[in-house]
Design a protein around this nucleic acid. Structure first.
Lengths: 87, 87, 87, 87
DNA sequence: ACCCTCGAATGTTAAC
DNA sequence: GTTAACATTCGAGGGT
């Protein structure tokens, strides 16, 4: 088997290892998150609602952005956007 | 081969056919939607922005609901929700 | 506001309506598909496998084969090839 | 407002912060993984196949085999079994 | 204890 | 070719 092929093999092995290592870390963090929810539940919080809170807080900044875009939206579509002239 | 098995085979075949038929229809509609976007583009509309408009209009009713829930959210989490007492 | 702009507005409105109408139809069909899977399940079929069958039937056999070969190559490089040894 | 409620509020705040912190970390790792795939691609590897390799390595061989068997059963019923005839 | 609904994660495909 | 939207799939959580 050629040196090139062996080289490629080693590269592949390393790539796979790196990915698997990172995925383990990701899973570990996911487990931590689950744990926090479990604690919250033990403290009497409603986890379903808690998840919703997290989701909403995540989405909020996006929505602001989108609403801003919404203004440009119709204006652009109607050829009235400030930046674009009639072209 | 038993009658039961043949019966099962026929059922499977019918199920697969129905699903494939429905998926074709779904694809056809998806194609129609693409076409409308293409027309819109030809008319000078910005399709990216158009997609955003559609998305936002879809989300709006949901958001209202979610924001309403947001109020209950913290209240529930803090044991202050109207429905639940202190338990 | 100019006549042109009003015209553009109407166009936009119509486009949005057409897209939303089509998306509703698409959703309806998606619901039908779900229903068929539910029926299949009630009849004792494994929906997961059933989905795989549908997927397989969609794919081009040749492409599929090429992917399989490449997969085998990678697995071999990692010493994980099934059936065959190290070659 | 009661001391208890204030206490609950603080707990809630801390919980939310912890979760959000962990989710950030998770996202960071997800970004790292994407990066490794990008590198692999630059080195000439097929990322699609690579992802499949990773997936395969994760799965339990036994379960995998059972699924394969059931898949074969369904495909046979549809006259699509590979390698084997109608039996 | 099981099903079922929901949200997250992945894989695919189209647009630019 | 790269990025982002889209559809599908997988898994966890909650309800019955």
């Amino acid at each position: 088997m050629s040196a090139d092929t062996n080289f490629a093999k080693d590269q592949l092995r390393q790539i796979v290892e790196r990915i698997e290592r990172l995925e383990e870390e990701k899973q570990a963090i996911a487990a931590d998150i689950k744990e926090v929810y479990a604690e919250a539940k033990a403290l009497g919080f409603d986890t379903k609602v808690l998840r919703k809170v997290i989701t909403l807080r995540k989405k909020d900044p996006q929505e602001r952005e989108e609403e801003e875009m919404m203004l440009h939206t119709y204006l652009s579509a109607l050829g009235m956007a400030p930046d674009f002239g009639e072209e």
